Simulated assay, not measured.
Amino acid sequence: MSWVRVYVHMVFSTKNREPFLNSSELKKNVFQHIKKNAEEKEIWLDCVNGHQDHVHCLISLGKEQSISKVAQLIKGESSFWINQQKLMAERFIWQDDYWVVGVSESHLESVRKYIHNQEEHHSKQSFTDEINVFMEKYGWSFIKGK
């Protein structure tokens, strides 16, 4: 029997970072649905939360799961569900890209706390500033022309 435990912190945003997730009730419904859908797809979604224009997920990848496939299953199905439920006046779509970093077991609690405290966090820091911090911390740079 194989045993795998690889945690990743995934972040993805609404198309053009539009603040579509602008009410507590809407966010609650979307995040609950993402959690339920992940469970149905056998994706171990430890926690999910976000702010008006983006979502954070702490995920433990299964032995046959890739980051791109998990992102596709979570983002694709949730945007389909949001549109099917007519939760927005206009068509909803997630941005194509996403950000993912590995999380060591020793940092799981701090990442969970960070994800659960998104409202408080974004009262002090914008999503753009957050991205810039991630990019600097992990040595990422924007790839032009893609």
Results as ranks from 00 to 15, higher is better:
residue 1 M to D: 11
residue 1 M to I: 09
residue 2 S to D: 12
residue 3 W to G: 14
residue 4 V to C: 09
residue 6 V to D: 08
residue 7 Y to F: 15
residue 8 V to P: 01
residue 8 V to F: 06
residue 9 H to F: 12
residue 9 H to M: 05
residue 10 M to P: 03
residue 10 M to E: 08
residue 11 V to I: 15
residue 11 V to L: 11
residue 13 S to G: 11
residue 13 S to Q: 10
residue 14 T to I: 04
residue 15 K to M: 04
residue 16 N to K: 13
residue 18 E to S: 07
residue 20 F to T: 01
residue 21 L to Y: 04
residue 22 N to S: 10
residue 23 S to T: 15
residue 23 S to V: 03
residue 26 L to C: 06
residue 27 K to P: 02
residue 27 K to H: 00
residue 28 K to V: 06
residue 29 N to T: 08
residue 29 N to I: 08
residue 30 V to H: 05
residue 31 F to G: 00
residue 31 F to I: 01
residue 32 Q to K: 08
residue 32 Q to G: 03
residue 32 Q to E: 13
residue 33 H to N: 12
residue 34 I to G: 00
residue 35 K to E: 09
residue 36 K to R: 12
residue 36 K to H: 13
residue 37 N to T: 13
residue 38 A to Y: 12
residue 38 A to G: 15
residue 39 E to K: 11
residue 41 K to E: 15
residue 41 K to Y: 11
residue 42 E to W: 05
residue 43 I to L: 00
residue 43 I to Q: 00
residue 44 W to I: 13
residue 48 V to K: 02
residue 50 G to R: 00
residue 51 H to N: 04
residue 51 H to D: 02
residue 55 V to H: 02
residue 57 C to Q: 05
residue 58 L to I: 00
residue 58 L to K: 02
residue 59 I to N: 00
residue 62 G to Q: 14
residue 62 G to C: 01
residue 63 K to A: 11
residue 64 E to H: 12
residue 68 S to T: 13
residue 68 S to M: 08
residue 69 K to R: 14
residue 71 A to L: 08
residue 74 I to W: 10
residue 75 K to I: 10
residue 75 K to Q: 14
residue 77 E to C: 02
residue 78 S to C: 07
residue 79 S to H: 08
residue 80 F to G: 00
residue 81 W to S: 03
residue 85 Q to L: 07
residue 86 K to N: 14
residue 86 K to Q: 14
residue 86 K to I: 07
residue 86 K to V: 10
residue 87 L to Q: 04
residue 88 M to K: 14
residue 88 M to W: 08
residue 89 A to M: 13
residue 89 A to V: 15
residue 90 E to C: 06
residue 90 E to H: 13
residue 90 E to I: 14
residue 91 R to G: 07
residue 92 F to T: 04
residue 93 I to T: 12
residue 94 W to E: 06
residue 94 W to H: 03
residue 95 Q to V: 07
residue 97 D to I: 06
residue 98 Y to I: 09
residue 99 W to M: 09
residue 99 W to C: 07
residue 100 V to C: 09
residue 102 G to V: 03
residue 102 G to Y: 06
residue 102 G to S: 13
residue 103 V to G: 03
residue 104 S to D: 12
residue 104 S to K: 14
residue 105 E to F: 08
residue 105 E to T: 13
residue 106 S to L: 07
residue 106 S to H: 12
residue 108 L to A: 07
residue 110 S to V: 11
residue 111 V to K: 06
residue 111 V to Q: 06
residue 113 K to L: 09
residue 113 K to S: 08
residue 113 K to G: 00
residue 114 Y to F: 12
residue 114 Y to W: 02
residue 114 Y to G: 02
residue 115 I to W: 03
residue 115 I to T: 01
residue 117 N to H: 12
residue 117 N to L: 10
residue 117 N to A: 08
residue 118 Q to Y: 10
residue 119 E to G: 02
residue 119 E to W: 07
residue 121 H to I: 05
residue 121 H to V: 04
residue 121 H to R: 11
residue 122 H to R: 01
residue 123 S to N: 09
residue 125 Q to I: 15
residue 125 Q to C: 08
residue 125 Q to F: 09
residue 127 F to E: 05
residue 128 T to G: 04
residue 128 T to F: 05
residue 130 E to K: 03
residue 130 E to A: 04
residue 130 E to R: 02
residue 131 I to W: 05
residue 133 V to P: 01
residue 134 F to D: 03
residue 138 Y to P: 01
residue 138 Y to Q: 04
residue 138 Y to T: 08
residue 139 G to Y: 06
residue 140 W to N: 01
residue 141 S to F: 12
residue 142 F to C: 01
residue 142 F to M: 07
residue 143 I to W: 05
residue 143 I to D: 06
residue 144 K to T: 13
residue 145 G to S: 05
residue 145 G to H: 05
